[in-house]
Amino acid sequence: MNVTIKEVAKYAGVSPSTVSRVISDSPRISEETKIVVREAMETLGYHPNAIARSLVSKSTYTVGIVMPQSTERAFLNPFFPQALSGVSAAAHEQGYCILLSTGVNEKEQLESIENIVMGGRVDGVIIMYSSVDNEALDTLKKLRVPAVVIGKPLKPQGVLYVDNDNVEASFKVTEELIKNGHEKIAFLSGSFKFVVSLDRLDGYMNALKKYNIPFKKEYILELSDYIKEGAYEVTKELLERKDRPTALVVTDDVMAFGAMDAIKRKGLKIPEDIEIMSFNNVPTAELTSPSLTSVDIDAFNLGYEASKLIIEKIKGEAAKDRVIVPTKIIYRESSK
């Protein structure tokens, strides 16, 4: 038999309305009373009804999640499960749930965002990417819904976001390759419609400039998606050139796996013939042969901090507008 609020109130020696206010974490109730009521709830095994809780607090206790593409396709890249684990962990700590928006293309995604927001199903939204033309963010601004972006927006003023310093991280990776004696360094990236790709390109170019290495446009390779097969094909073509590179900066480990397959199929050795350094440090990076040197961007913490920040914003407690998560290079066999 379910325990009722009245039973909790009687056990704690307070009124039912006080129990309701404790459930909604009202600042009008003292911490001492909250402790007494929560202990009574735990003793009696009382669990607040989510709908009733929402009616009392006028909050859904739910955060919406916007992916860069269809959810099924996004999960093929290990970054998103890792980041979502962080989002979920922080949300759970605060008593919040998460709701994934759906849609196989941008139009359907925007419709999904409008449906969950206008339907009163979420209190705020986390956008799991930052694109040059971020229509999802624009839509949320028009709907006056709190939003946090994972990734630095192209125009960050007035936008809450969580990110790494991708310009600096890419600079360090490219600098490492230059110090290892390379001047022919190619840059293999995901779509430049994402700000993270542009930031990492800036870091790469900054390093070339610092060490007076000529920039070669033909060494810049862009893929529309972060997929292994696409990276294999463009790397295969790159290796056919007379002036082939001796090192690769790759902006995503999944693409790096494809590049490594192409290099090995060509009969070249890693890192002796071509040295590779990548980004994201996905769990399988250490399992490849040779194992992949990669920048650990701490995807879990990116999600965790984004979740904390959006909940703080929902509660009116956000004291900052951005969080920068540190990175570090994890050295393995693909680099010297």
Rank of each mutant, 00 (worst) to 15 (best):
F75G: 12
N77F: 03
F80C: 14
P81N: 10
A83K: 09
A83F: 06
A90Y: 07
A91S: 15
C97R: 14
I98L: 12
I98C: 12
L99K: 11
L100D: 08
S101K: 03
T102L: 14
G103P: 13
V104L: 14
V104K: 15
V104E: 15
E106W: 01
E108V: 08
S112A: 06
E114G: 02
V117P: 03
G120H: 01
V122K: 01
D123V: 02
S130R: 00
E135S: 11
A136S: 14
R144H: 13
R144F: 05
V145C: 15
P146D: 11
P146W: 01
V148R: 06
G151R: 02
K152R: 14
P153T: 05
L154I: 13
P156M: 10
Q157T: 11
V159W: 02
V162A: 06
N164K: 06
E168G: 05
A169F: 03
A169Q: 05
F171M: 08
T174D: 11
I178E: 12
N180P: 05
N180H: 10
N180I: 03
K184R: 14
I185F: 00
S189I: 02
S191M: 09
K193D: 15
K193W: 02
K193R: 13
S197L: 07
D199M: 07
D199L: 11
R200V: 03
L201W: 01
Y204F: 09
Y204D: 06
M205R: 15
N206F: 01
N206G: 03
K209T: 14
N212F: 04
F215G: 04
K216A: 08
K217M: 08
E218Q: 09
Y219W: 02
